[in-house]
Amino acid sequence: MSERFHEVAVTVNGEDVRERVDARKTLVDFLREELALTGSHVGCEQGVCGACSVRVDGVVVRGCLMLAVQCDGARVDTIEGVADSGEIADLQQAFIARNALQCGYCTPGMLLTAQELLARGGVPSRKQIRAHLSGNYCRCTGYQAIVDAVEAVAKTRAEAKR
């Protein structure tokens, strides 16, 4: 029988973390239970709702579909990291100004997913924003306020570049 527990070395929000983890533990459970980074949420545990979205080596992934052991050697960024670094300060502010969240449970995943789109540069159309966010379920807002906030930030960032 192969080893059940494995040592992994992960850089989480810039901090080096070394832990022995159960091979079956998902990345989001590892973040929440071992590292107490509870900003990433668990919604469906089957990769549908997007509440557990985190960034692994710069790419947004479902934290419930990736195992913690798969992240050995990787850099993981969570909502706590991008919030503290100021990377998405303008996006957070736009969400607050536009009331683009109600209960806030989907919000960390929504922000990371929106930031992924915004990081490509340019001003995406509302249709493109909606398509990009379609893997992140929000049951409260009806999405329009989220689309408004993302669109507003895209325009502001594009303006600032000119």
């Binding site: 668990v42 919030a83 503290d84 919000t107």
Partner: peptide, 19 residues
Amino acid sequence: VPRPNLARLTQGRAQFVSD
């Protein structure tokens, strides 16, 4: 008026029971 409780919800600093 913006809601006073939104900033922490956008920073991953909420306290849901599951947390």
